[in-house]
Design a protein around this nucleic acid. Structure first.
Length: 726
RNA sequence: GGGUGAUUAGCUCAGUGGUAGAGCGACUGCUUUACACGCAGUAGGUCGUAGGUUCAAUCCCUACAUCACCCACCA
């Protein structure tokens, strides 16, 4: 028997990974049984993995390894997301920093090339990092949201939705990000609480009604004043029109009655600026009013804004208007209030509502092929019917609330890195198709698609859809999706939308949402705080098993957690404990005869944790009790695994292994091993408990358990069968 | 404005209708035929506040407080 080192050496983890990967068992083609599928939420191809990814990867790998051991045909399909807006922003930032030029300076083609180089490098890093964590993913099926098979899926999806009338083009007031120079969807808008001044004033001295606003500069775009129909103060003015000169702009203000006005707020009268407020745009639509644009894409006032402020930035224009109002004696009141300022999630720029021609997904249109249901209803039904289970359950409520308030989804972006909208124009003609139409003179839409449009197809675009592949038949719908709760709307909901419409099926059966890993003070990891932790560094120091346990134990579904290095260190110690217990067992069971080995012969395929009357070995009642306890542990662990309760499963295994097996059973065996009469049964007990424990621990701590297993087995622990209940 | 989660030992978190647990840390001993990344042991909590239900509440109900988060076109 060779010497076994005193301390577990986690630097050998890469060898073990190599062993697994080259075995081919990450690939379900080499496995049998019922399919079990998880699509990896594709990390953004913009950077490197952080500790949160390590957590997410651990959860999925635990699930996958457990199901693989249960004898299922497990597919864990990895990939990366081109993350259009994030990548576009990031690379442009680097470009500006390095050369002082922005994307417009170097042109579309050169810019996209630059992004692609960046992404290629980044993707390689991510793949390596996932391997380091121990991800037993099928690399042969790896996908990228921007590769050719996925492009085909995206163009096909667009075409089908366009033909079903679910995608339309129209002028709407959308969220414009002047900093990022693109529109963004409602979900990409982040509201930030800010102090602002609420100004109350009249357009002119002889105007009868005072209005209140925090943005006086937009008032040069007003076309009406809306009041509540029942408001007696203003009833007599409804229907009247006033011509006023407001700060150098000639306005035609009509007094309209609209239910949406709250008579209690401010003066109870709203200055209606259709082009720069979604609410006002709606009012204007109801009353057939025009929508003059007074702010442009760069958040500067247009010529329509009047002589006083045309060409000025909005902030500057505001000051000018306020000064003008004061000078004219029109300002009645200024009060400080708290407002929720809309900002763009990615760039941080202040959102400027602008009327623009954009592409939208209609969520309220009845779909004939889906029994007349709207996309909204399809999304709601998928969860309400129980076909999709969201864990923890409380998020189902959040999901329904989001759906109920959902408006049409703006899917066009004025970015360069992304999927071009598959629509071509020639004069008045418009064509949507998978390929560019025949003939010359067609020009493709300049816009690109929201990145979430492509990731929404992820569960089936990765399986070869729109082709009817064998993979698609075998692995869709997938079993589990395990993203963070923060992308429930962005991604999970959109996957349900796409899958229910395009495939008439759910994309997954269970959504297991995890929380955010924060730093020890409870702060989010962020570049600006510079509190990021590189999982690869932690793994170098303590091993991947220790990191996985440190992230998983004590963290319930959907709960945020704090990353604690000391905890990881504790599980490094545990890995060493396992190693040494195994070392002890091996040193003391070398002379076991094959007949009393718990894993002999035909039991190989699906062995129970122990067998009665193995060989000539007689078990004492005490041994029976110990085996009973082991059986209880197995039963409990299995239930916990099936219930996604990894935190407790791992904790119980830890406790059993250390404080029951190592502290008691193993200690007490020392006397028995020294006595020839009790030696054989003690050996059998040790070996049985160790091997069962290694199997139960494997999904959580794959490296140390496999390393030990390899010391005296030819086959991989990774594909050993999960112990059977007695 | 609506909603969700949290509040238990110094720290991080479990937990149950019958007067509380783990890991880490602290402290005290230990080179005991695997492990000092170890072993044996000790101390430490009016389970956020106020009511209510109950024979009995940390756990159920109702308020409130503090913290965190999500949603929302009050101009």
């Amino acid at each position: 028997m060779r010497e076994i080192p005193k301390t577990y050496d986690q630097s050998k983890e890469t060898d073990i990974y190599q062993l697994w990967e080259s075995s081919g068992f990450f690939n379900p083609d080499n496995l049998s049984g019922k399919p079990f599928t998880i699509m990896m939420p594709p990390p953004n191809a913009t950077g490197t993995l952080h500790i949160g990814h390590a957590f997410e990867t651990s959860i999925q790998d635990i699930l996958i390894r457990y199901h693989r051991m249960k004898g299922e045909k497990t597919l864990w399909l990895p990939g990366t997301d081109h993350a259009a807006i994030a990548t576009n922003t990031k690379v442009e930032k680097i470009l500006i920093k390095e050369t002082g030029k922005n994307r417009h300076d170097i042109g579309r083609e050169a810019f996209v090339k630059k992004v692609e180089e960046f992404v290629e490098k980044s993707r390689g890093t991510i793949q390596q990092q996932l391997r380091t964590v121990g991800a037993s993913a099928d690399w042969s099926r790896e996908a990228f949201t921007f590769d050719e098979p996925r492009n085909l899926a995206i163009r096909t999806a667009f075409k089908k939705m366009f033909e079903a009338g679910l995608i339309y083009r129209g002028i709407r007031v959308i969220n414009w990000d002047p900093k990022g120079q693109t529109s963004v969807s409602d979900d990409e808008v982040v509201h930030k609480s800010e102090k602002a001044q609420l100004y109350t004033f009249k357009y002119s001295k002889d105007f009868p009604i005072a209005i209140a606003t925090t943005r006086p500069e937009t008032k040069v775009g007003d076309v009406a004043v809306a009041v509540h129909p029942a408001d007696v103060r203003y009833k007599k003015f409804v229907g009247q029109e006033f011509k006023v000169n407001f700060a150098g702009a000639d306005l035609n203000i009509k007094i309209v009655a609209d239910e949406s006005v709250d008579p209690e707020f401010g003066t109870g009268a709203v200055g209606v600026t259709p082009a720069h407020s979604m609410a006002d745009f709606d009012i204007a639509q109801r009353h057939n009013l025009p929508a003059p644009q007074v702010i442009n894409e760069f958040a500067k006032m247009t010529d329509t804004a009047g002589s006083l402020i045309a060409g000025k930035k909005t902030k500057e224009a505001r000051e000018i208007i306020v000064a003008w109002l004061t000078e004219q004696g029109l300002l009645e009141k200024t009060e400080a209030i708290d407002i929720n300022l809309a900002t763009a999630e990615r760039s941080g720029g202040t959102i400027e509502p602008l009327p623009k021609l954009q592409w939208f997904v209609n969520v309220n249109k009845a779909v004939a092929e889906r029994s007349g249901k709207t996309l909204k209803e399809l999304m709601r039904d998928a969860v309400a019917s129980g076909k999709i289970k969201i864990l923890p359950e409380r998020f189902e409520k959040t999901y329904f609330h989001w759906i109920d308030n959902l408006r049409d989804w703006n899917i066009s972006r004025q970015l360069w890195y992304g999927h071009r909208i598959p629509v071509w124009y020639k004069g008045e003609e418009i064509y949507s198709g998978i390929e560019e139409p025949e003939g010359s003179g067609w020009s493709q839409d300049e816009d690109t698609l929201d990145t979430w449009f492509s990731s929404a197809l992820w569960t089936f675009s990765t399986l070869g859809w729109p082709n009817e592949t064998a993979d698609l038949k075998t692995f869709h719908p997938t079993d589990v999706m395990a993203p963070g709760y923060e992308i429930l709307f962005f991604w999970v909901a959109r996957m349900i939308l796409m899958s229910t419409f395009l495939l008439d099926d759910v994309p997954f059966k269970t959504v297991y949402l995890h929380g955010i890993v924060r730093d020890i003070q409870g702060k989010k990891f962020s570049k600006s705080l510079d509190n990021g932790i590189d999982p690869v560094e932690v793994i170098k120091q303590y091993g991947a098993d220790a990191l996985r346990m440190g992230l998983v134990v004590g963290v319930g579904a959907g709960n945020d957690s704090k990353y604690d290095q000391m905890k990881v260190k504790g599980y490094r110690n545990f890995a060493n404990k396992i190693w040494n217990a195994a070392r002890f067992v091996m040193q003391n069971t070398q002379d076991m005869t094959p007949s009393n080995s718990p894993l002999k012969g035909g039991e190989k395929k699906n062995p129970p944790p122990f067998k009665e009357g193995l060989g000539e070995v007689k078990l004492t009642p005490e041994d029976q009790a110990i085996l009973y306890e082991l059986n209880q542990l197995l039963a409990k662990t299995t239930i916990q695994m099936d219930n996604f309760d990894f935190a407790h499963a791992a904790e119980n295994l830890y406790h059993y292994f250390w404080h029951t097996f190592a502290d008691k059973i193993l200690e007490e065996s020392k006397v028995k091993l020294a006595n020839e009469k009790t030696k054989a049964s003690a050996q059998l007990m040790l070996k049985t408990i160790l091997e069962t424990s290694l199997k139960l621990l494997h999904p959580f701590m794959p490296f140390v358990t496999e390393t030990i297993w390899q010391l005296d087995h030819k086959d991989l622990l990774m594909i050993e069968k999960w112990p059977r209940l007695r």
